[in-house]
Computed example of a mutant assay.
Amino acid sequence: MSRQQYRAAIIGTGGIAHAHARAVQSSGGRAELVAVADVDAGRAREFADKYGIPHAYAGADELLREQELDVAHLCTPPQLHAPIALACLEAGVTALVEKPPTLSLAEFDALIEAEQRTGARVATVLQHRFGAGAARLRRLAGAGELGRPLVATCLTQWYRGEDYYAVPWRGTWESEGGGPTMGHGIHQFDLLLSVLGPWTEVTAMAARQARPVETEDVSMALVRFESGAMATVVNSVLSPRETSVLRFDYERATIEVEHLYGYTDDDWTVTPAPAHEDVKSLWGADRTEGSSGHTGWFAAVLDALDQGEQPPVTTKEARRTMEFIAALYASAFTGERVRAGQITADSPFARRMDGTGAPWRNQ
């Protein structure tokens, strides 16, 4: 596999942009940050100086016009993801989009159409798929070493106080697209979906319990998968003891990970079923010291580009996750079970995640 050096830019210099800059700088020279853009020109220049980036711009359009790029890291507030990703595609630049990639399923489908039309690529940043533990779990499960998947639990119980929502774009359907279902739990349940495969139906509830926001601050869902496995998914920003937990109960073992914003091999535990102690040795055969995060994800992106393939997480894979989010909201707000494929282009929940409207909107 021949390796190239890729010209990269970062658009948006909020907190997550620093993780992207460090990932590029940790690529071993495979990528170079040549430009950064932010609507606050002073902040763009400060970010550029911090990371030794030669060019700083006051907007994405100017950056895309002035620079020849291979990839652009989109680290803006969510409502800007779709329009800037579209501009990148039109410029022939691969767009690496932070979560959530768009505000709606309809916006995401527009990106898929533009990707097919322009030949450029979009990849969603869902970095927890790329930790060693997740890769090992998918490999062992795919090889049949764990038996059938039966039961799973997916918990994102974080805490975000009112000061967090003082940022104007947070907590609204128009600018963030949703609450913890959209912007916090997505990492955990995307990993759940990457392990268990296609989901078939969702039954959910959501509520605005405590935060002064338009969106939910907690949601819960029961999910069935094509394999027959069933899962519980919880997304919360109301939980003082913060944790991120995934538990998979297979016929031959329980596999668990508990962390907060990123995991290492030390965060995983394996409990074999009786007569299946060999699972523990299979799990421990290739332990690593690395952690899940942007560095591993970006290395996978560069590997795909080197091979002329679509970088991860592909639009096909990310759409399954976005459809799951839309289905969860649709079930929560209508009180009905929602099946995969049920949210078609004419559904209000395809156009907006709040669809027919959150039940508390007039309270």
Rank of each mutant, 00 (worst) to 15 (best):
V151N: 15
G144C: 14
G171V: 06
I186T: 05
L191V: 05
A135T: 08
G147H: 14
G133T: 02
V167R: 09
T172D: 02
W173C: 00
D190S: 13
P180E: 02
L126C: 11
R121A: 04
M182K: 12
F130P: 06
E145M: 04
A166S: 15
Y159S: 04
A143D: 11
L192P: 01
T124L: 09
L155A: 14
V151H: 15
A152H: 13
S175H: 02
M182Y: 05
V167A: 12
G171P: 04
G171F: 02
R170F: 06
L191M: 03
Y165C: 08
P180Y: 06
Q188Y: 03
L191F: 07
H128R: 15
V167D: 10
L155F: 15
H128D: 08
H187I: 04
P180T: 06
P149H: 11
T181A: 08
V167E: 10
G147E: 14
L193Q: 10
T172A: 03
T118N: 10
T172I: 03
T156E: 14
T156F: 09
E174Y: 01
G133R: 05
R117V: 06
L146M: 12
E162D: 15
G185S: 03
T153D: 14
T153Y: 15
G177D: 07
R117C: 03
Q127D: 08
D163S: 13
W158Q: 15
V151M: 14
G144H: 11
G142D: 00
V167Q: 11
E176M: 00
A166I: 11
L126D: 08
L192K: 04
T156C: 13
G183A: 01
Y165W: 10
E162P: 12
E162K: 15
V151G: 08
E176A: 07
L140Q: 01
Q127G: 02
R148P: 14
P168L: 08
T118W: 07
V167F: 09
G177F: 01
V125S: 00
G144W: 08
V125D: 07
A152N: 10
E176H: 00
R170T: 07
Q157V: 07
Y164G: 12
V167L: 08
V125T: 05
R136V: 02
L126K: 12
G131S: 15
G171R: 03
T124M: 12
V125G: 00
R160F: 10
R136I: 02
A134E: 08
A143T: 06
Q188R: 09
W158A: 13
G185E: 05
A132V: 11
Q188A: 09
Y159P: 03
V151Q: 14
E162S: 13
G144Q: 12
G131F: 14
R117S: 08
T156D: 13
A120W: 00
G185D: 08
M182E: 05
G171M: 02
P149G: 11
L137E: 01
R139A: 13
M182N: 12
A123G: 05
E174R: 10
R117Y: 00
P180G: 02
W169V: 09
Q157E: 15
Q127K: 07
P180C: 01
